[in-house]
Every structure is written in structure tokens, then in C-alpha cells.
């Protein structure tokens, strides 16, 4: 289990890293937490000639709140988010961060790396698509922000150009009366979830005023179940509306059969996870403290 020989470059700043990418060409890869890249290189499934290491760039790991948005440095580790106080007020972030893989991986893996990798089974994209999320990107030519809704274009594919990298992720803090929840089913800590469901719901009394539902691992990109959201919006959250949302989820997802389960089972599981996530999100919207995270077999 040794990768093919490669050149190692240590970037001193993000602009320098972008310049290195630009100079080294297509055969260069960024190394952030290495959560996906290192196992792929070890198995020789990925064989980049150059690695540009971001881990020694100062000031890339932070969580701060400004103007109603939480901003994450691209190299903020999952464990830093898991252990940060932001999870108390913004629990869907904690649901996600605390459940990714295992402790060792959470200590290495980064939020920016996860989004840029755009793995169909990744956790962060599904969660953040239920929020107003902007990705700040940087290349030798420009800096720009891209809404997350436009950022991921296909499996393992984003709008990032070859020499462009993620600098920061900015997520608007949801207002009062809203609640979110993220649930994923995985068979053991280090494996990808079989399916995951992220839900953000705004309640006014017993009526759902707004809803965002996103399913992970059941399509080439996270599936935004807009019909399912419509089934809840301006309605009471009850067995009937939840059942309608679940039906819409079964319709919306496009899972592939693999060792994690058959396509039909994954449809059922995605719907079941949505049902539970709605329940938790509604309770949180009402101000209850509820702890959830990934579900294990």
C-alpha cells in the first residue's frame, strides 16, 4: 500500500497554492485533510504527479460569526466544528460534523475538502444545501463567491477551475422558529452512509412556513427534494403531510444499487430518514434541544 512516486509541494499561502496549481498543470492535486485522496493514492486509484499541501498555510482553519453568517475557513476540521459552540445554536452542523467517519478522520478531514471533492456520499454538501451557503473561491486571476446550489455540478465535479481553490464557506444562521436536522445511516464508523437526509424547517405555530429537504448518497449529486418541501410548506406537519413528503422523496431520489443496499431499499431508507429528520427539525424549531447524529446498524 504505497502510492506511486509524486512530488510534494508545501504552499505558504492560498494564493501561492493556486499559483502552484496553475504552474504544475492538471496532474497536480491539493492536499487538505486527505480524507479521500490519501486512501485513493494508497490503493493507486489516484496517481497525481504533484501534491500541493495546504496544511501549513496559516489562517485557514477558523469558525467565526459575522453579519448573521457563520464563516468556516476551508481547512476547518470536522472535529473542530463538532467541538465548537456553534453546534449548540446551529445543531444541524453538529449532527453532521460529529458523525462523519471516525475520530481520526474527523481530526484530519476538512469542510472545504469535503465540498470540493463533491463525493456523492459526502455529508457536508447535503447539509449545507438546506442552508443559504456561499463558497468563496480563489484563483490566481480572481476571487469569487458561488452559491452552493451552483457549486456542485456532477459527481466529483464542481465549478472550480483547475487552479481554483476553496477559501471559505459562509452559511447564513437560520432565524428563530426554524430548525434543522441531519440523519445518515451507516453500517460502521469509517464507511460511507447508505443514505442521508438533511432537513431545515421554519414553523409558524403548527404550520410549516418553509422547508428544505436534501438527500445524500442517493444520486450523483445531493438531491434537493423540492416536491417534498412543497408537500410540507404551508401545511400542518402531521402524518399526512409527512407521508406525502416521504412519497415525494422516494420519487426524487435516484439511488444506485451497491454493497450498501439495493436501489429500492435506499428509496425506502431515504424516506424513513426524512421522516425522522422532520420530526427532529420541528422539535428544534420549537426550541427543544434534541441530539441526533449518524445512525449505526
Amino acid at each position: 500500500m504505497y502510492p506511486r512516486p509524486f512530488h510534494y509541494h508545501r504552499a505558504g499561502s492560498l494564493p501561492e497554492a493556486a499559483t502552484m496549481l496553475s504552474q504544475l498543470g492538471d496532474d497536480a492535486k491539493l492536499l487538505a485533510g486527505g480524507q479521500s485522496l490519501i486512501p485513493l493514492m494508497k490503493l493507486r486509484f489516484a496517481n497525481p504527479s504533484h501534491l500541493v499541501d495546504l496544511n501549513f498555510v496559516p489562517g485557514t482553519s477558523y469558525i467565526n460569526e459575522q453579519n448573521g453568517a457563520v464563516r468556516f475557513g476551508a481547512l476547518t476540521r470536522h472535529s473542530e466544528i463538532e467541538n465548537s459552540s456553534i453546534g449548540v445554536r446551529f445543531p444541524i452542523l453538529h449532527d453532521c460534523a460529529a458523525g462523519i467517519a471516525d475520530v481520526q478522520i474527523r481530526n484530519r478531514g476538512t469542510i472545504g475538502g469535503s465540498l470540493a471533492e463533491a463525493d456523492p456520499s459526502g455529508d457536508w454538501a447535503a447539509v449545507l444545501l438546506t442552508q443559504k451557503t456561499e463558497i468563496w473561491c480563489l484563483s490566481p486571476r480572481r476571487e469569487r463567491s458561488v452559491p452552493l446550489t451552483d457549486f456542485i455540478t456532477d459527481a466529483y465535479t464542481t465549478v472550480l477551475e483547475h487552479d481554483e481553490l476553496v477559501r471559505e464557506i459562509s452559511v447564513e444562521v437560520p432565524g428563530k422558529g426554524t430548525g434543522g436536522a441531519y440523519l445518515a445511516f451507516k453500517r460502521s464508523a469509517p464507511v460511507y452512509p447508505t443514505a442521508s437526509a438533511a432537513v431545515q424547517i421554519t414553523m409558524e405555530g403548527d404550520i410549516c412556513k418553509d422547508a428544505h429537504l436534501v438527500l445524500g448518497c442517493v444520486g450523483l449529486v445531493p438531491v434537493r427534494a423540492t416536491a417534498a418541501a412543497d408537500a410540507l410548506r404551508d401545511r400542518r406537519i402531521d402524518d399526512k403531510s409527512v407521508a406525502a413528503a416521504m412519497d415525494a422523496v422516494r420519487e426524487a431520489v435516484d439511488p444506485q444499487a451497491d454493497m450498501r443496499g439495493s436501489a429500492e431499499y435506499k428509496r425506502t431508507l431515504a424516506a424513513a430518514l426524512v421522516k425522522r429528520a422532520i420530526e427532529v427539525a420541528v422539535r428544534r424549531a420549537r426550541g427543544e434541544r434534541v441530539e441526533v447524529s449518524h445512525i449505526y446498524a
Binding site: R187, S188, A189, P190, V191, Y192, M259, Y296, A297
Partner: peptide
């Protein structure tokens, strides 16, 4: 099932 992503050895979590 040639990796621990597909062959799932039991862990304390299970």
C-alpha cells in the same frame, strides 16, 4: 467486499 468500506467488521459502535 475487499475493503472495510464494503466488508464491515463490527466495531464498538455496533
Amino acid at each position: 467486499t475487499s475493503t472495510f468500506s464494503d466488508y464491515i467488521p463490527i466495531t464498538a459502535m455496533n
